[in-house]
Design a protein around this nucleic acid. Structure first.
Length: 271
DNA sequence: CCCAAGACCTGGCGGC
DNA sequence: TGCCGCCAGGTCTTGG
């Protein structure tokens, strides 16, 4: 379920093991991910130092000389640091063998993840170039959201999940942020006032920050990169709580399909 | 350009 | 216990 907080938690977990170290080689057991893992990627990156690991939306970017490895966890991916020599499991598709002997392992049962090479300038890569603002960036404001919302016929939930507007807001945190902002997920974006856009932007920021602080949400198959689960699931107000009482007013939470995705909301607290 | 729906995959769950 | 249909974190692609 990696959304932005899970990806950021993963990034922070692997930085001490990867940043500043040389990649000795890559083992690709299963190249059939969202896009095929490029056949020559091992030769391209072997012997290169990872200068920095940064995040853009839900992409992890390993910056090397002359380009970067782009990594996406899809819907079911996770990255772990293993001591080398741990036998791979069925869904352990790619290993990065690091200087010092540890092994960064990508596990992804559904294979919606990606491992790609992006030549410099990395941000011009076709997967990155059209991405919208980072939600935690100061440029992401109520006015920015309002300008993107005011002529759009899609629901406000679809709009905040649109990566061309703002990155990193997936189904879980869209539901949560709309609850905290008191906005029904199915309302047309064009009907949201500037003031409510501001409230929603603040809710998106605080929800993501709280989730990062908690180490992400634990759902089914996500485990933090250090092998420990995150704790944000204990703070979820609506996601996965259809039929349960609202934590604020006690009303039974309702569910609806919006833009093909399940949405849960409180019909009393959200208007 | 905008929007809705389809596509890619596997695994877990509830129901019978 | 076994099988079947449904559902799930994402997001690119297609067609209207």
């Amino acid at each position: 379920m990696p959304e932005l907080p899970e990806v950021e938690t993963t990034r922070r977990g692997i930085v001490p093991w990867v940043e500043g170290r040389v990649i000795q080689g890559i083992t690709v057991r299963e190249p059939r991910l969202r896009w095929p893992v490029p056949p020559g990627i091992g030769e391209r990156v072997a012997g290169e130092r990872v200068h920095r690991i940064r995040r853009r939306g839900k992409y992890l970017i390993f910056e090397l000389d002359g380009g970067a490895v782009l990594l996406h966890l899809g819907m079911s991916g996770s990255l772990r640091v293993n001591p080398s020599g741990v036998p791979p499991g069925k869904h352990d598709h790619v290993d990065f063998l690091m200087e010092g002997g540890c092994c960064l392992r990508l596990t992804d049962p559904r294979r919606f993840g990606a491992v790609l090479w992006a030549p410099a300038p990395v941000d011009a890569h076709w997967l990155l170039r059209d991405l919208g603002l980072e939600p935690l960036d100061g440029e992401f404001t109520g006015d920015y959201l309002y300008e993107h919302a005011r002529h759009r016929r899609v629901s406000i939930k679809d709009l905040v999940m649109n990566a061309k507007v703002v990155v990193g807001v997936g189904n879980i945190y869209a539901n949560e942020a709309l609850f905290h902002a008191g906005i029904r997920p199915g309302i047309a974006a064009r009907r949201i006032t500037r003031a409510r856009c501001s409230r929603l932007v603040e809710a998106i920021k605080s929800t993501l920050e709280d989730a990062i602080r908690a180490g992400g949400t634990t759902l089914r198959d996500f485990v933090g990169s250090d092998g420990q689960p995150g704790y944000f699931s204990q703070q979820l107000c609506v996601y996965g709580r259809r039929g349960e009482p609202c934590r604020i007013c006690g009303s039974v939470l309702k569910a609806a399909k919006i833009g093909q995705r399940s949405s849960v909301y409180c019909s009393h607290c959200q208007q």
